[in-house]
Amino acid sequence: MHAIRRQSGFFARIFPFLLLAPALIFIFFVQLYPGLYTFYLSTRDTEGAVSKYIGFKNYDLVFNSAIFKESVVHTLIFLVGYVSLTLIAGLLVALVLNRKLRWSGLYITLIFIPWVLSDVIVGYIWKLYADPGSGLLSPFFALPILGLNGDPLLIASPPESYFEGIPFPPAPAMYYVIFAAAWKALPFTTLLLLAALQTVPKEVTESARIDGANHRQLFFNITLPLILPTLLVTLFNLTLGGMNGVGMIFSLTGGGPGSATEVLSYLLYSIGFGQLNFGRAAALSVVIFAVNLTLIILSLRISRSRAELI
């Protein structure tokens, strides 16, 4: 932390606030004010020509709609699949790259390319792969062992659900969305975990090895606890990103087949901008926002290094 510098004169005193002002003004108008306005909107019936106050009825309507419950389950399935797949794959790749291979720089550069692509483009790349007939993966999806019975992957309907009213197990398209999203998120996860692995002191692992620890003990007792904070922060980042990313659903499945890949963020779009019901969409926004905020607060608590920095 740096020392406070005291200077006399009115200009010198307001100087820092002048520098800060543009950033704070923009953040206020794009982040804070819209947040408050969305809350205001969520308490109003916007379907008439003039909106009127209806209390928390919009929340009632959202919570009690069948599509909301279905979307929550879709979102949970997506998040569990996407976050665990990305974290495990990212950790494995980071462990490989941490061996200081001669071409590590080249590998990480190549691996990183999907990260700079747009969600929408990534969705198209994988959609083209799954196209029945011309898609390069279509012969694979036609294999009898996958049980699609000749249906195209993105159109095959979900299997009969185990529990009444809960869309589980998901449609085949959901697995594909999870895979495509993990493909795009893998680079960033790998980079963060690699950076964390490189902060594990060599002396610690060396001395443990001399004491006779094997690879598995070394990983679970030394490396994993040391990178756990980064792992958790990454987990929260992935959950946040996964919950709010919608571009890939747009281009890859459009929420289909039926509504089988309709996650909460896509539902928000379809209520707000498809049905043009702003009040109800605002209520859903507030719900998503509240979940986001909880995740952020948890992430800030866990990441103690960030707190120390402040």
Binding site: V30, L268, A282, N292
Partner: peptide
């Protein structure tokens, strides 16, 4: 951590 998504209606 707040996405553009939840602010879209107001924006």
């Amino acid at each position: 951590g707040i996405p553009l998504l939840t602010n879209l209606l107001a924006l």
